[in-house]
Design a protein around this nucleic acid. Structure first.
Length: 581
RNA sequence: GCCCCCGUAGUUCAAUGGAUAGAACGAGGGACUUCUAAUCCCUAAAUCGAGGUCCGAUUCCUCGCGGGGGCGCCA
């Protein structure tokens, strides 16, 4: 089914002179008096034709009307110039009703498209670190990445998601050093709750390093040994990875993330790194620094990026150990062979400098994928009292906060709907839905404040609001037996019904826009607006009790269509639409 | 010092360069014998400052003020 917006664009293009090469923008006006859709092309056209925007608009309106007649189009009921150059379009009730019928014919496909057909995208998100407790700050990458994947899939893209678990680096040397130094009793204690225990061990070691910087060097030595294949270090490291993966799997399961096609942790690139360094040196991209000031045996291998203002990128440290940057380059090289059209990293803004370096060095090394790679930036999450940091000890564990949300949902269900079946299942869906929506409703780029009160709220612009709206609509549909309400001719509908219908028909455009700008929040905000209109309708328009049979049938169609839209939209955000709550 | 991001109602957030800047929470008032009140309706309330580009600027540019982040042989 074609999007209405596309149809309007086509009609406008048909009425434009051949020499017009500007973009045709069609937008939704703020106020209903300005129509269902609007375009500002007349302003651009006026410049070329050297007329006033108003005249240009009038001319175009006349041309469209003429062509519309010739094509026997019946899409608009009104087209007119206004506001000194805007052209406003009102869609005819017949056309709206026709679209409603089309949509109900195949609601499963509603919102999907094939604009991404044949294109393969890799999305990297949810990069938890081994031996660290994932906190609410880690949620953004997982939730935004998962929603993006769903949105891309709906547009026909092939998507490969990859977690890129942080299981390599100096931090493991530091951890190994601390672990070996710990007493047997302490080690046993840590083993009982390993991820928490290792997390705390790392924090404690960090404090010791602050007081005694020498200890960092010992940690670095342990990592170098690990990288060189030291048996004991490998064994301990492997154990740390194993216990952490259990926790990551629980998060993936409880947050309902789509399956990851690949879970290539950093350590898998171990063998790919040395040849990459060799190549960089041979190509003259990187250079080995002289030994003089360094303590190690060899000089560090670095890429000078000062010509583009990106400073110095370190591939190998002077002790021979690899860096995060080198691992990301190896990753880039690996994926370069997989015929990707796009390679996206959903990572917070603090790493933008790092990714600029990765992509720039990648280009210098002649890895074509580097120029098709993008860092999808998102802001980080802070608490009302300031930034979250493991060292400050003020992090909120991701699973802890999810537990709280589910408990809160259970409480509210007991209060509002104690008769509900599947209480536990609904509580889980509502709890995680609220948490995900809190994140997704914010623009990815903005830093967000994790205000517990706001995030835990189930009222207003929240996930449960959308779920509740869906449940109410479904409740109406459950009460009817006769589903033959779809066959009828176009009825007259009032402003509220019409507004809801037009808004509902914009769904595919919202999904398309969200995909285009890599922002699930575009879709989230659209769904919220739709739900508001649906609730308004619900209050003022009885459906089952409507006496006029034709009106009732139309309202049932509308309810069914809006419910399906909410369900599909929530699915794209990774939120479950529950039938009752 | 250099680079990046952000300043919108009391608060938390919206608004591909468009027409009258939207919500939510909070505040005040109202609506359940009526398809689920996790809802709906009404009221008050905002673009950090100064220039510039443009027919048109919350949006783009410059400067200033304020907040955050990065520039580690950390990840």
């Amino acid at each position: 089914m074609t999007r209405i917006r596309e149809e309007i664009k086509k009609i406008i293009r048909g009425a434009l002179p051949y020499n017009f090469d500007g973009e045709v923008l069609v937008s939704v006006p703020d106020v209903t008096e300005h129509g269902d859709y609007s375009t500002n092309v007349a302003f651009a056209l006026a410049k070329i034709q050297k007329t006033s925007p108003r005249e240009a608009a009038e001319e175009m309106v006349a041309k469209i009307k003429e062509q519309g007649l010739r094509m026997k189009e019946n899409v608009f009921s009104r087209i007119e110039g206004a506001g000194g150059g805007f052209i406003n379009f009102w869609i005819s009730d017949e056309a709206l009703f026709g679209k409603l019928g089309e949509m109900l014919w195949k609601p499963e496909g509603w919102g999907r498209s094939n604009t991404g057909k044949g294109k393969k995208i890799r999305v990297e998100y949810f990069q938890p670190n081994v031996a660290k407790i994932p906190h609410v700050g880690h949620m953004r990458s997982a939730v935004i990445g998962d929603a993006l994947k769903r949105i891309f899939l709906s547009q026909g893209h092939k998507v490969v998601s990859d977690t890129h678990i942080g299981d390599w680096g100096t931090q493991f040397g530091i951890l190994l050093y601390a672990w070996k130094e710990a007493s047997k009793e302490d080690q046993e204690k840590i083993k009982k709750n390993p991820v928490r225990g290792l997390n705390d061990l790392y924090v404690a070691e960090g404090k010791k390093i602050e007081a005694e910087p020498e200890r960092r060097e010992r940690g670095k030595e342990e990592f170098a040994k690990l990288e060189q294949g030291d048996k004991e270090n490998r064994k301990i490291w492997k154990w740390m990875v194993t216990v952490s993966l259990v926790e990551f799997d629980e998060i993936k399961r409880r947050f309902g993330l789509l399956r990851f096609e690949e879970e290539r942790a950093e350590s898998v690139y171990e063998d790919a790194m040395p040849p990459l360094v060799e190549r960089a040196l041979k190509k003259g991209v990187a250079a080995r620094k002289p030994l003089d000031s360094a303590q190690g045996v060899t000089g560090a291998v670095v890429v000078d990026l000062s010509d583009v203002g990106l400073g110095e990128a370190v591939l190998l440290k002077s002790d021979g150990a690899s860096t995060y940057l080198l691992r990301d380059l190896a990753t880039l090289e690996y994926w370069d062979k997989k015929k990707l059209d796009k390679n996206l990293y959903v990572v917070d803004i603090r790493q933008s400098h790092h990714f600029s370096q990765v992509f720039d060095v990648g280009k210098r090394l002649g890895i074509p994928l580097a120029s098709r790679s993008e860092h999808i930036v998102f802001g980080f999450m802070s608490l009302p009292e300031g930034a979250m940091s493991t060292r400050k000890g003020n992090v909120i564990g991701l699973l802890d906060v999810l537990d709280t949300m589910e408990a809160r949902a259970r409480e509210i269900i007991e209060k509002k709907n104690p008769e509900l079946k599947n209480k536990e299942k609904v509580a889980k869906a509502v709890g995680v839905g609220a948490l995900k929506y809190f994140d997704l409703s914010h623009h990815p780029k903005s830093n967000i404040m994790f205000d517990k009160e706001k995030a835990l709220s189930f009222e207003g612009n929240t996930g449960p609001y959308l779920q509740y709206t869906y449940a109410r609509l479904r409740s109406i549909l459950r009460k009817i037996q006769d589903t033959r309400h779809k066959k009828q001719t176009s009825p007259k509908f009032d402003e509220c019904e019409r507004g809801l219908l037009v808004e509902m028909l914009r769904f595919p455009e919202a999904v398309e826009d969200a995909a285009k700008v890599y922002a699930p929040s575009v879709l989230a905000n659209y769904l919220y607006g739709l739900a508001q209109k649906a609730n308004e309708f619900y209050h003022s328009h009885p459906v089952l009790k409507e006496g006029d049979a034709e009106k009732r049938r139309f309202r049932l169609m509308l309810v069914e269509a809006v419910a399906a839209t909410l369900k599909n939209g929530l699915y794209l955000l990774g939120i479950e639409a529950v039938e009752e709550m």
